[in-house]
Design a protein around this nucleic acid. Structure first.
Length: 103
DNA sequence: AGTTTGACTGGAG
DNA sequence: CCTCCAGCCAAAC
């Protein structure tokens, strides 16, 4: 039947789309939510192919260190517009802005 | 089929 | 805070 891999992207997109204003999520969290705790890389891969036309707040997705996407300088501005505090080194204040939907 | 790559993670130095 | 490394896993070469 349909392998979870087909749903993977769809699940990821759904989750990212539901990220509340002023919050961020790590790749690991998303991977866990879709049932693949070790596929954080796969999540990033899917993110990389997200078209801008899609109304997806992919700028709210960061890595576990709160580090922003390498090479995407605009992300910092987008996050700041969300009210998210970016540290001098370019990392978000994780503990403050992490979206904790999981218990 | 082996190697490289990547929007990752966590820990060590 | 920084870089480097081992572990991790799927997709691309």
């Amino acid at each position: 039947m349909k392998p979870d891999l087909e749903n993977f992207d769809a699940e990821v997109y759904s989750i990212v789309r539901e990220i509340p204003f002023g919050k961020v999520v790590t790749y690991g969290q998303i991977a866990r939510l879709v049932g693949f705790p070790r596929h954080s890389r796969r999540v990033g891969k899917s993110m990389s192919l997200v078209p801008k036309e899609m109304n997806l707040p992919c700028h709210r997705v960061v890595n576990s260190q709160g580090r922003l996407v390498p090479g995407w300088t605009d992300q910092k501005l987008l996050l700041e517009k969300e009210g998210i505090i970016i540290k001098t080194n370019g990392c978000v204040n994780l503990k403050l802005c992490i979206w904790e939907e999981i218990l």
